[in-house]
Design a protein around this nucleic acid. Structure first.
Length: 875
RNA sequence: AGGCGGAUAGCUCAGUGGGAGAGCGCCACGCUUACACCGUGGAUGUCGCAGGUUCAAGCCCUGUUCCGCCUACCA
């Protein structure tokens, strides 16, 4: 017999090792079976498992296990992402502790050092995923910097370049002065920050007056090359074309007219610093203005800043403001709340910076990505995200893919030092194809990490090689990821997949929500509200933890996590475990190989209910309604199987006289339990695998997922069971309301038109309502006196209290019932009295309403009679 | 500024046109031989607000308030 309680810590370890040993996670490259594939959103190598990973991977494992059991050739591709800036930062911090920096080490040695770090710590999150039970195809594990994936990156770059979709140019980009690299637009996080709006006087060069401009960044004025006003602004039409003297710099700059300027804001005149503001940069292109870089890549003022050269940008702001004030140029200072962009990796304020960078031309790629979703080649679930997806792609800007860091895929571009020829190649060139020179210099920059991630759905299966795996598993079937990387990753995979593979990277995309704490706050270390998934697994077991995540994943809703809930589902695991113990205890003498079939009501009923549950859970999983799937199986196991079925069959199991029926019920019990273990397996892989050993040989994870059978529904059995359940409920209600102990046996009379059903079910009522005697009488029989009474749709129930009836509490109980039913009657009669309702509502609805009305009226009459009798009894 | 989502029992949330639900918590009674990590019974809601459509609205439409998120170049 199994132990009294399930010990997840031991079982999880053993079972996972068995699955690995038996190689059950591995999918064949080619197979007769229908392929089903998912690529994991590769966690950063620097990552530690957090709630987001836990949710993400639980959902993937759930679907993967469901598909595997359903007979598909199921491949879940695992791996990690090299996470350029994040990883470089981690290693640089390590160096810092040793009093070194990366420049001292030099590029090669630094990269070597990162690889060492990766070897040591990079696998941690993979092991953490295993703790969850993830059934990834570990043999296939990939890393975005692997040789194969690096080759894919070069191939993609070269193709894009040759097709004119990659270009290099001097543009203003988001620059992090601390990471010392360019960032894409997506890597900047804007935060509302209190600042000031400084109003500054710019005198006209001809001495005829002045124009006032407003700015949030006075230090940038050192690099101003114009002042702009709106061409329709009458206040300024006369001054357009004039020159002003740039204060502190003493340089003449023009006043220009441009639609971009909003006349309503500030003074309606804006200073233009093309090197320090993207809008100003665009304006400089339109008006051919000079670009003066006064802020350098390290955030200090350049030599162009004259007297301020060398100052930090914030220090310079103070100096400039002080000088403007001293020289009478400062008109006023207003407090001003504005959005300031920060580096998403280190929170340093981003500096718009003009530099030479590489870009991917997005428009043609975006068009393909839009069309694929419009045509339905890829479905986005929940569909509300489609709008966001389209909106972003329709307004997309070119993607800055170069990063001035060392950890990443170095851009495969070389320059011939002799003839300046640019060479773009997948393999390192040994000499210049134009002049034969062997002195070539490779581009220093590396690619944005997301460039390689964008290739993940096909680079992982071997692209650009035409491998069997690629043929079998591309397009992948499903991607499950958080909505927060819809742009970063999903959209870019769509573009790259369509462009390089000629087909979408996945058929379905399921976007799940964020995991928050129970107050709905985002979990963060600084808030101290993080719940560590590994800690939860240690405390409650992976099964309970997983089930919690699934049960709270409703489409379009955040997942609010709390320890209390996980504990609740641990109780559920315990319930299952004990139901299994009960089952096993009662199957000890059972020989499973004979063919039994039972027609007892509980057996027919549970077959029907189980069948419907299979259907419900299957349909919910197929449409990604995770909470419904979890809820359906929870309800069945706890409230149908345990609460009713196991109780109902006890008498049959304990009765050794009727061996045939006992055997048949044992068989049904065994089948039912095995089936729910299979149904539950994708949700709770460990406890189900553990229990499976007690029921069958082999592994549940590769057994067949239950299939529902449309003809197995037994409406008759369900209807009869409902009659019995209602009567049992009525008796229990009397017991509970009258304060009679559950151990006290009752004598009950049931008066009904369904004499046959209740006579057959008498023993069940006796057992579940704890009665010593149940008498079933036809509806023509006289009603017994001195009883507490209850009424159901199909029966009147009389509970004998042996003259000890507590009249006061019985009256309260009956009056409560009367009030409830009266309300029902009123609602129903009102509807039926409404001619519009009777005419316009569907016949079925009207009929239902009439039936409800009739039933309620009968119940009410009975209850009123009972109340009357009660009065007679008491007087 | 625009877009999206949410507002239903004390808490967390299901419920997309016909009798307001679940889990947890709460109250009462019970250690009945699978389970006290349990069982049985009970209490609890102007379904954010205001209009409208409909025989019928938590659900559809319009407006509105509050909360959250995303996108955006207003200095």
């Amino acid at each position: 017999m199994i132990e009294k309680a399930f010990d997840p810590a031991i079982a999880e370890k053993e079972i996972y090792a068995e699955w690995l040993r038996e190689n059950l996670f591995h999918a064949a490259d080619t197979s007769e079976k229908q392929p089903f594939s998912i690529v994991i959103p590769p966690p950063n190598v620097t990552g530690m498992l957090h709630m987001g990973h836990a949710l993400n991977n639980t959902l993937q494992d759930l679907i993967i296990r469901f598909r595997r059991m359903s007979g598909d050739n199921t491949m879940w591709m695992p791996g990690t992402d090299h996470a350029g800036i994040a990883t470089q930062n981690v290693v640089e911090k390590e160096l810092e502790k040793e009093g070194k920096n990366r420049e001292q080490l030099g590029r090669e040695e630094f990269v070597e050092r990162v690889w060492q770090w990766k070897g040591k710590y990079g696998g941690l999150i993979i092991n953490q995923l295993k703790r969850l039970g993830s059934s990834c195809d570990w043999e296939r594990e990939r890393f975005t910097m692997d040789a194969g994936l690096s080759r894919a990156v070069r191939e993609a770059f070269v193709r894009l370049y040759n097709d004119g979709l990659i270009y290099q140019g001097d543009y203003i980009v988001n620059w992090c002065p601390r990471c010392h690299t360019a960032l894409s637009d997506l890597e900047v996080e804007y935060k509302e920050t209190p600042g000031n709006l400084w109003h500054i006087r710019y005198p006209f060069a001809d001495g005829s007056g002045e124009i006032i401009v407003a700015t949030t960044r006075p230090e940038t004025m050192l690099g101003d090359t114009a002042v702009a006003v709106n061409p329709t602004d009458a206040r300024y039409s006369a001054v357009v074309g004039k020159k002003v003297i740039l204060p502190l710099v003493n340089k003449e700059i023009p006043i220009i007219a441009d639609d971009y300027v909003s006349p309503e804001f500030g003074s309606g005149a804006v200073k233009i610093t093309p090197a320090s503001d993207p809008n100003d940069f665009a304006m400089a292109e339109r008006h051919h203005l000079e670009i003066v870089k006064v802020i350098g890549g390290d955030g200090t003022i350049t030599a162009q800043g004259g007297a301020y050269a060398g100052q930090d940008r914030y220090q310079c702001r103070k100096s400039v403001v002080a000088d403007l004030e001293a020289q009478g140029y400062l008109v006023k200072v207003e407090p001003y709340l504005h959005k300031v962009g920060g580096c998403s990796r280190c929170v340093t304020e981003v500096e718009p910076f003009v530099s030479r960078q590489w870009f991917v031309k997005m428009e043609p790629l975006a068009k393909m990505a839009i069309a694929a979703v419009v045509k339905g080649n890829t479905r986005i679930i929940p569909s509300m995200w489609e709008a966001t997806y389209f909106d972003w792609l329709n307004n997309i800007r070119d993607w800055c893919i170069s990063r001035q860091i060392w950890w990443g895929h170095r851009i495969p571009v070389w320059r011939c030092l002799n003839c300046e020829k640019i060479i773009v190649a997948t393999d390192d060139p040994s000499c210049c194809p134009q002049c034969g020179e062997s002195n070539l210099r490779q581009e220093e920059d590396v690619l944005d990490t997301w460039f390689s991630s964008a290739l993940w759905p096909f680079s992982t299966t071997g692209w650009p090689e035409k491998t069997e795996a690629l043929k079998t598993f591309y397009p992948t079937s499903l991607l499950i990821t958080g909505f927060d990387i819809l742009f970063f990753w999903v959209a870019r995979m769509m573009m790259m997949g369509l462009y390089l593979m000629g087909d979408v990277p996945f058929r379905d995309v399921y976007l799940h929500a964020l995991v928050r704490d129970e107050q709905g706050e985002k979990m963060s270390k600084s808030k101290g509200n993080v719940i560590d998934p590994l800690n939860m697994i240690d405390k409650y077991g992976a099964d309970a933890f997983r089930f919690t995540l699934v049960a709270f994943t409703a489409q379009g809703r955040d997942v609010r996590m709390s320890e209390e809930r996980i504990q609740g589902y641990k109780f559920f695991v315990n319930k299952i475990w004990n139901a299994a113990r009960f089952t096993l205890i009662n199957l000890e003498d059972f020989i499973p190989d004979s063919d039994y079939s039972s027609n007892s009501l509980p057996d027919r009923w549970i077959r029907s209910r189980l069948n419907k549950t299979i259907q419900e859970v299957t349909e919910a999983l197929e449409s990604y309604r995770f909470n419904d799937a979890a809820g359906g199986i929870y309800h069945f196991i706890w409230h149908e199987l345990c609460d009713w079925y196991l109780e109902l069959i006890k008498q049959t199991l304990y009765n050794k006289e009727d061996l045939a029926q006992r055997r048949a019920t044992q068989a049904q019990l065994r089948t039912t339990f095995k089936t729910i273990l299979q149904l539950l397996h994708p949700f709770m892989p460990f406890v189900t695998e553990r229990l499976w050993k007690e029921f069958a040989s082999g592994y549940i994870m590769v057994s067949d997922f239950p299939r529902h059978d449309p003809v197995a529904n037994d409406a008759q059995a369900e209807a009869e069971m409902t009659m019995l359940q209602d009567v049992i409920g009525a008796i229990r209600n009397v017991r509970g309301e009258m304060g009679i102990a559950t151990t006290k046996k009752l004598a009950v009379t049931v008066i009904t038109e369904e004499v046959a059903v209740f006579t057959a079910g008498k023993a069940y009522i006796e057992a579940l309502a704890n009665c010593q005697q149940v008498v079933i009488l036809d509806h023509t029989a006289p009603e017994p006196k001195g009883c507490a009474t209850g009424v159901t749709v199909k029966a009147k129930v009389f509970v004998e209290l042996g003259g000890m009836i507590d009249i006061a509490s019985e009256r309260v109980r009956l009056e409560k019932e009367v009030a409830k039913i009266s309300k029902e009657i009123e609602a129903a009669s009102q509807k039926l009295a409404n001619e519009d309702f009777v005419q316009k509502a569907s016949a079925a609805v009207v009929q239902k309403e009439e039936m409800r009305f009739q039933e309620a009226k009968e119940k009410l009459a009975f209850l009123q009679k009972a109340l009357m009798r009660l009065k007679e009894f008491s007087s």
